[in-house]
Every structure is written in C-alpha cells, then in structure tokens.
Amino acid sequence: MGMTGETFPAITTRKDAVVAWGQKNSLWPMPFGTACCAIEFMGVAASVFDIARFGAELVRFSPRQSDLLLVAGTVTFKQAPILKQIYEQMCEPKWVISMGVCASSGGFYNNYCTVQGIDQIIPVDVYISGCPPRPEAILQAVLKLQHKIENPNTTPPAQFKVKEPTFDY
C-alpha cells in the first residue's frame, strides 16, 4: 500500500492484501480450553498481558463466529470428536493454534487416553511449546499467525526459523 499523492485522495493496493490486513488484525479466537493452558489463556486475556494489543481480544465461544481456534490443553479420545466437530463448524478462512505440549504432541501424557497431538485430527498452523506456555509465547504465536496470514505463500521470517536439531541415535 502507498499514498499516491496529496492531491488525489486515494490509495492503491491489492484486494487480497487489504483483506489479509483486516483479517490479521481482527482475529476472533475461540478458546477450546480444556486444561491448565486455558487458565494461562485467561491470564493472556487479562489486563497484564492483554491480547487486545494484537487485535485478538474478542473471545467468541461460538465456533461459527470465530476464525481462530485456540486449542488450549490436553485433548483426550473422549474429547476428540468434539474438537473435530467444532473445527468443522468454523467458517473459512480459519486458523488453528495448538497451545502447549499436550495439544501439540500429547506432552508427558503418553498413555491410553490422550491424543498424541491434535494434528492427528485437525490441521494446525502454529504450535506453542511449554507446559503451560508463558503468556508471551501465546502473544508470539499470534504474531506469527498474523505473519502467516499476511504472507500466505512464504516461509516464516528469519527470527522464527530454528535450525533443525539433529539427533545422533
């Protein structure tokens, strides 16, 4: 986007850029909070960390009104059909943040009742590590998602690129 001059009161841009700009700054999250991470998400929404600074404060508890599914907490096999249904109820475009290790990989609950990562059920855009993640990490995930919305076809910027750890078994 750029100003074309003071005499002509208009700007030129691309349509998808404007849409993406609007989408990224007005994410409506639906917190699918099940466990400890949900308590930490409440902390992010409260005044000290204030997710409103990033335009994502309008928490909707109806999947039909929201475009960001924030899966906060452990998802068990009993919960899995519900999570899938809620994801399917959301309208396109929609994004998913997997908050905390339980949602991302099952965490230290490697047992008979815990889904080993919600990506077995629904697609995930951003994963957050931590058990539970710090509020700053959630804010960073929102920023990262905003970057992804703005640049749908590009790889993440350098600051998010981590060298793949190599394990020598």
Partner: peptide, 11 residues
C-alpha cells in the same frame, strides 16, 4: 465427566 481424563493414575 471424563473429557479430561488423562490417565494420572496409570501414568
């Protein structure tokens, strides 16, 4: 209940 049964006792 049981939607957050994550196997504390077995673990």
């Amino acid at each position: 209940i049981g939607y957050l049964h994550r196997g504390f006792e077995k673990d």
